[in-house]
Each structure stands twice: as structure tokens, then as C-alpha cells.
């Protein structure tokens, strides 16, 4: 295994796109449905990138492509300098040791019919991480690492609560000693108090193991807490990306602002948020609006927005926005015309 220089990003996605063509009727023409379009993204070791967006924005498809589970229609996805789509089956399986995934649904991500220990040992055995005689000790160590008793190894998933299952899923992901973890909404199905346990666990692991992490979520608070860099997606495209404190502190894209305003808060404002609540719903990806995908719901939209898809232009250091009317504004400030 060649160690990449620490400055080079571990994971590089270049203008990734994924099309799911659908056909209407028996003889109908295939219709393009782009779940992800033109997404470029890099993640370095020890960095957590958060992907935020609502259902249907393509964030999970992006996660699967970055794991090599799904091949991009356009663009390239490379891990540690190797193009994933050029790899053969055995090569990909070998490389997948270094990339692991944590899923949203802690009830669906574990095989209900096998013991926890057997499922965690799978990765150890497949990639010969430890000699066969030490598999048991290693499973125990992994369980301890995620804060579960070692006796858990003999039990089956249905005997555990949601939070405990999510820890088991994390232990399984860690078993192959990965460098890169994709966490697809790992806490959305959990109770608040358990969410905090899992978020803290992921944070500790990232720090201790120097992992690169892609954290997919629709919960802005969790993302803000955990991530160094944020990517906001809407209808398959990145609409804003940048350092966490910039994107949340002074969001430049009207969608990011709307998302922030829509998120309920323990300390609700005076109710003026009412006007800020986004009207309408996500357009169908099969029939996206012309020009800027957000213009149908955008409070700032004007004629120019319909003509062309805006470019992802910098508004600050490492901070890009896809909006022709972009400007960093704090929530209190007036929107510049």
C-alpha cells in the first residue's frame, strides 16, 4: 500500500453524473433522469465533508458512487489516485477494504439471521486483517471501541436497540481498517439522546484514526457540528460548498438560507421566519426547470435565472456558490437586490 502524501486528497470526484433513464410505456422514448449532475468533490485524510440536501437531491446516489457501489455515467471517481471505474472485480474488492459505509437504517443494515460477531468478522476474514486465530479477540476489541460489551458478539441484531445497532454497524465498517467512510444519514433514524452518542463516536473515530469521512444528512445541526466542509445539494447539483462556519454563518445561496430558516430551533425567533419558509416542493428530476434548478422556489428568482444553469463561482476562499445573485448575507441583513 503506497501512502499518499498527506497534502493530496484521498478521494477525488470529478464532474460526477449519474443518469437513471426511465421509459414511459412500452415503446416510449427513454427519458433522462439525472440523479447527480456535475459534482466535483475532494476529501483529504482527517477531513469530514458534510453533504446536505433534502430527499431527491442525489446525496445518497453520490455517496454510493464515491464508494464504488454505483458507477458514474459521466466523470471519474478516484480513490488514492486510482480510477474506480477502471478497476476489475477482484481489484475493486481489494480496494474496498479501505472504503466502508455506515447506513441510515440500523434495522436494515444488519443481517437479521447471523450473529453480530460473525458479521463483524466477515471483513476481517475477507481481507485477512488478522490471523484466523485472533479474529475473536479482534471482534471483541472492535466492539469495545464502539462502546459495546464483548458479549454482544454472540447475539443477533434484533436483541439490540437502534443506537446499539448503529454502533455495531460502525464496528463492522471499522473492521477492515478503512481510510474512508461514507456515513449515509447515520443518525436520522435514532433518538436524540442516542444521536449524540453516535455523533460523538464518529467524531472520536475520525480524530483517532485520521479517517476521511463523507457525512450525508438532512439535519443541518448535526452536519454543522461534525463537519469541516459543507456541500449543499439541490436537484442533483451542488449549489453551495465551503467551510462549515461560512456556509452556516453567512449562507450565500438562497436555498441554503431557506434550509437554515426551515430547520426548527430550540430557540425559535419572533415568528418572522414565517415569510422565509420555502413555498412549493422539489421539482421532479425527470423534468427539471430550465436554467437554475432552484428558480421555481427561489424568492430572488428573476428572468435571467431561467436562461442558463449558473456556474459554481467562488465567493470566498474555498467557498463556491451556484447563483447569479449570490452574496454572503447574514440572516439579519437585507437581501441585496
Amino acid at each position: 500500500m503506497t501512502e499518499a502524501p498527506s497534502t493530496a486528497p484521498l478521494v477525488v470526484a470529478e464532474s460526477l453524473g449519474r443518469n437513471f433513464p426511465t421509459r414511459h410505456g412500452l415503446l416510449g422514448r427513454a427519458h433522462d433522469v439525472w440523479a447527480v449532475r456535475d459534482v466535483s468533490l475532494t476529501i483529504a485524510k482527517g477531513e469530514t465533508v458534510g453533504i446536505v440536501g433534502e430527499s431527491g437531491c442525489g446525496k445518497s446516489t453520490l455517496g454510493r458512487m464515491m464508494m464504488g457501489l454505483d458507477l458514474p455515467t459521466t466523470g471519474t471517481m478516484s480513490f488514492d489516485g486510482r480510477d474506480l471505474s477502471a478497476l476489475s472485480g477482484p481489484e475493486m474488492r481489494k480496494l474496498s477494504r479501505r472504503m466502508q459505509m455506515v447506513f441510515q437504517d440500523p434495522f436494515g443494515s444488519l443481517d437479521p439471521r447471523r450473529t453480530i460477531g460473525a458479521q463483524i468478522a466477515d471483513g476481517l476474514r475477507t481481507h485477512n486483517i488478522v490471523p484466523a486465530s485472533e479474529v475473536k479477540t479482534e471482534v471483541a476489541r472492535l466492539l469495545e471501541q464502539v462502546g459495546l460489551p464483548t458479549s454482544a458478539a454472540q447475539r443477533r441484531p434484533h436483541e439490540f436497540s437502534g443506537g446499539q445497532r448503529q454502533r455495531i454497524a460502525v464496528a463492522r465498517a471499522l473492521s477492515t481498517r478503512p481510510d474512508f467512510i461514507v456515513a449515509d444519514e447515520p443518525v436520522s433514524a435514532l433518538d436524540v439522546s442516542i444521536q449524540a452518542q453516535v455523533v460523538n463516536l464518529l467524531e472520536d473515530l475520525r480524530r483517532d484514526l485520521d479517517l476521511a469521512m463523507l457525512f450525508i444528512s438532512h439535519d443541518l445541526h448535526v452536519v454543522r457540528h461534525l463537519c469541516t466542509r459543507i456541500v449543499v445539494m439541490y436537484l442533483g447539483r451542488i449549489v453551495e460548498e465551503g467551510p462549515a462556519e461560512k456556509v452556516f454563518g453567512s449562507p450565500a445561496h438562497p436555498y441554503t438560507r431557506a434550509l437554515l430558516a426551515a430547520t426548527p430551533s430550540l430557540h425559535p425567533g419572533d415568528g418572522s421566519d414565517g415569510d422565509r419558509i420555502l413555498k412549493g416542493e422539489l421539482p421532479s428530476p425527470a423534468n427539471p426547470p430550465s436554467g437554475c434548478p432552484f428558480r421555481t422556489r427561489c424568492p430572488l428568482a428573476e428572468e435571467a435565472c431561467a436562461s442558463a444553469v449558473p456556474g459554481l463561482d467562488p465567493v470566498g476562499k474555498h467557498w463556491n456558490v451556484r447563483c447569479i445573485k449570490a452574496g454572503p448575507v447574514t440572516a439579519a441583513q437585507e437581501v441585496p437586490a
Binding site: G68, L69, Q100, D122, T126, H127
Partner: peptide, 26 residues
């Protein structure tokens, strides 16, 4: 299509092994 099968795939398990060990019992 279930997550635990995807988890096996992302772990790099051989497809035949996934069939016998994970899918068959289910």
C-alpha cells in the same frame, strides 16, 4: 437491495460468498 447486502458488497466480499452466506438464509 437491502442495506446489509450492500454492506457486504462494500466490504469487498466475493459475490458467490454473499449469495451463500447472506442471501440464501434470508
Amino acid at each position: 437491495g437491502l442495506d446489509f447486502v450492500t454492506a457486504q458488497r462494500s466490504m469487498g466480499t466475493h459475490p458467490l460468498k454473499i449469495l451463500v452466506r447472506t442471501i440464501l438464509p434470508n
